[in-house]
């Protein structure tokens, strides 16, 4: 257990220090959201309506881009081989790495959401709803994306291939994330139903993600 905690602490420290790149994800998120009004026009009413969708798409793309480094850096300096051979079960180690990655790269996105909501003319309730759905949904993005990251590291390919493989798998999270935020703002539906499905998707990804990533690493790194 202490080995796992050490792994998580090490990963967070690497991600946050100089050259770690976790905070660049937040900057990317900010840039994407700022770009949107230039594409659709500075109409505040329209931006309010599209707000949750824009925030969710931005968070989805930002978390996808930072995933590239999840295993790659460890593979380059050899510590990934140590993790694979180590006494901590690989599934647990993968889960730990994903948790650390989410804490360093996913949580800042949630924290940045209120500021960006202000830019998109979202009121307090809407901003809170989007932040809450992102809090529940981004772990699912990280844990399913980890499968793609593990495949990418065993194939020595990243970037576009990873995006093409992972994005279709994240459609359910996007659907229920946006639906829950919109339900909280205006929709006829209650907030509870889509939100609890979103939480369920996150829970499923906690199980499937580490096992699939561990299987991919175990079969791929030989």
């Amino acid at each position: 257990m202490t080995a796992l905690a050490a792994l998580i602490r090490r990963d967070i420290r690497i991600a946050l220090r100089v050259g770690g790149g976790a905070l660049i994800g937040v900057l990317f998120f900010l840039t994407v959201v700022v770009l949107m009004p230039f594409a659709v026009g500075p109409d505040l009413a329209l931006l309010t309506r599209l707000g949750p969708a824009i925030l969710w798409l931005g968070a989805l793309l930002a978390s996808l881009l930072t995933l590239d480094r999840l295993f790659m850096a460890d593979h380059e300096d050899g510590s990934l081989d140590l993790i694979v051979m180590g006494r901590v079960p690989l599934e647990l180690a993968c889960a730990g790495k994903a948790l650390a990655h989410w804490l360093a790269a996913g949580l800042p996105l949630v924290v940045a959401t209120p500021v960006l909501g202000l830019l998109l003319n979202l009121d307090l309730l809407a901003t809170a709803a989007v932040a809450l759905t992102l809090l529940a949904g981004t772990p699912a993005l990280t844990f399913t994306g980890m499968i793609g990251a593990a495949l990418a590291v065993t194939l020595h390919r990243g970037g576009l291939l990873l995006a093409v493989l992972v994005l279709p798998l994240s459609i359910p999270v996007l659907i229920f994330g946006v639906a829950a935020s919109e339900a909280a703002i205006a929709g006829p539906l209650s907030f509870g139903a889509p939100f609890s499905i979103l939480c369920a998707l996150s829970l499923v990804s906690f199980v499937v993600g580490p096992f699939a990533a561990a299987a991919s690493l175990r079969h791929g790194l030989d």
Partner: peptide
């Protein structure tokens, strides 16, 4: 490639 594709297919 087969092993990576197998993981992706099952997921």
């Amino acid at each position: 490639a087969a092993r990576a594709a197998a993981v992706l297919t099952l997921v």
